[in-house]
Design a protein around this nucleic acid. Structure first.
Lengths: 186, 186
DNA sequence: TTGAATTTTCAGTAATTTGTGAAATTTGAT
DNA sequence: ATCAAATTTCACAAATTACTGAAAATTCAA
């Protein structure tokens, strides 16, 4: 791996983290390399920089494309394909969240909903369904909220986050508007 | 696996999902089994229900304990250890988030901060640092916001989520308070 | 069309991760 | 202290996943 120590440590860390999140280590490294690269890279450059076989890079890029995490482009007079990552880190984050939602959250919600349709055969199943219901509601609420939030433009999102737990005050305020003049209890 | 089809499909799905998130499939299944179980289970019961070896269950439980995802308890006159999951799904979610933050997010932020301290040796490194800075800020903002939000009690949290993107209105409102009487342009 | 450049596929191997059974350790009742 | 019950450890085997090189397929310029 002929990268400067600075970039190398980033690439290696990212590969390591990737593997903890169910992403192949070398794919994580490829992504990290593209992320910090000044200019788009072709597969040979990546294979060379990371010390992987050309075919491994090809498969890794396919994987990254399926996650919509890389952009493909061409340069005039050069047949090779050049890859890069979007510049906007928030956009990247959103893409990743969307894709995980589609691949993991939605199938899980479907499975839970189907299980909840069944008539429980005994007390154990009745209890299991109650638990699945709790899990379903948590996932459902969390992810719909998340996609709501995602629709905000980045600047609004940043403001919201910077505000942090202050939002609580807003909720209290809203509460008062809905039930004016009610005593302070609760 | 001598479980009813309803419970079995939940357990299997959960194992599958676990493995996509970097969690050993059998550990995922063990967790799922405990999650839907009416009463705490001991290791032998789990091994029996899931068809795993006793030693595999032992290691899986250690793993789950390290994530603080299971509760251990004893019953009078029984030396064996019984495991269960917390009843409150939101509490479970928070534990998981805390643990992932500690294990993955914080080390990543440290790595990024260290990289950002270095003096860039050339233009490529300068650019890489800029990118790492962007990533650092996103992770930092997102996670501090998340831990702020997490501090809210569950009821408030639910209200907030139910509100969804309406929060935007709050932000606009706040904006007006900070700069009253300024013309409407952005 | 031909053929060189480029990318993809895939069968086989390598590496890693997971699971097991037997042995060792710990626990607690007597 | 002793011993059986319970749990943990760990070396090995099994299973899964990742990587490679060679061959096949695709692309595009001439």
């Amino acid at each position: 791996m002929n990268l400067t120590p600075l970039i190398q440590s980033f690439v290696l860390h990212f590969g390591e983290m990737g593997s903890r999140w169910g992403i192949n280590r070398t794919v994580g490294q490829m992504y990290a390399l593209l992320f910090v690269s000044e200019k788009p890279l072709n597969a040979d450059e990546m294979a060379e920089a990371l010390g992987f076989s050309r075919s491994n890079v090809s498969m890794g890029l396919k994987e990254l494309e399926s996650w919509r995490l890389v952009k493909l482009q061409h340069f005039p007079g050069d047949r090779r394909e050049y890859y890069s990552t979007p510049e906007d880190v928030w956009a990247i984050f959103k893409t990743l969240a969307d894709e995980r939602k589609k691949r993991e959250v939605e199938p899980t919600l479907s499975m839970l909903r189907e299980a909840l349709m069944e008539t429980p055969a005994n007390e154990a199943e009745r209890h299991a369904q109650a638990r699945m219901g709790q899990m379903h509601d948590l996932i459902d609420l969390t992810t719909s909220w998340f996609s709501d939030i995602q629709k905000l433009d980045v600047e609004t999102l940043k403001k919201l986050m910077t505000l942090g737990a202050q939002v609580q005050k807003f909720l209290e305020f809203k509460q008062k508007l809905s039930f004016p003049r009610v005593s302070e209890k609760e």
